[in-house]
């Protein structure tokens, strides 16, 4: 069964012992996201190095096994990448990292961390003024 494949021990291990769970001592940007449907909430923080690369990353909050495991995988994936590179990360990536089909009803849970990341990117764009050109390529 599909869902049983998703909830395999590897995912549950990530839920029980998530990577990058907690708060950073020093953070460049923080984002807070809730999934009003289920009450999942997540803080996502990054610390950028001088070159704009993610030196450290952490998430915290409460959520279901899928949102926690997804954040655990995805934050690992993001570590060391520059925010400029992160901007181009496809929405399917966190889903793929889970290693089994999530199914439409639970996509939102798996993508909570991705949406929080988009908020971080927006904060970064606002601060550096890099976002504008991307949104209005004609101007």
């Amino acid at each position: 069964m599909e869902i049983d494949t998703l909830y395999r021990q590897e995912l549950l291990e990530h839920y029980r012992n998530p990577q990058n769970f907690g708060k950073l001592k020093k953070a460049t940007y923080c984002a807070y996201r809730v999934n009003p449907l289920c009450g999942d909430e997540m803080d996502l923080e990054v610390l950028l190095d001088r070159n704009g690369k993610i030196e450290d990353i952490a998430f915290s909050g409460q959520g279901c096994a899928i949102s926690i495991a997804s954040a655990s995988h995805f934050t690992e994936y993001l570590r060391g990448k520059s925010l400029a590179r992160v901007k181009r990360v496809d929405r399917e990536i966190p889903l793929r990292l889970l290693g089994a089909s999530v199914g439409a009803p639970r996509r939102k849970c798996a993508l909570l961390v991705y949406d929080a990341l988009q908020d971080l990117v927006k904060l970064h764009d606002k601060k550096t003024g890099t976002g504008k050109n991307r949104r209005n390529p004609r101007s």
Binding site: M1, E2, I3, D4, Y7, L37, C38, G39, D40, G63, C64, A65, I66, G103, P105, R106, C109
Partner: peptide
């Protein structure tokens, strides 16, 4: 076991419940 995971895993067995607030 978070409520949503219970609901998903029950759904896999054809059992419809609601989870959340």
């Amino acid at each position: 076991v978070p409520a949503h995971d219970i609901a998903s895993l029950l759904d896999a067995q054809g059992i419809a419940v609601r989870s959340g607030h």
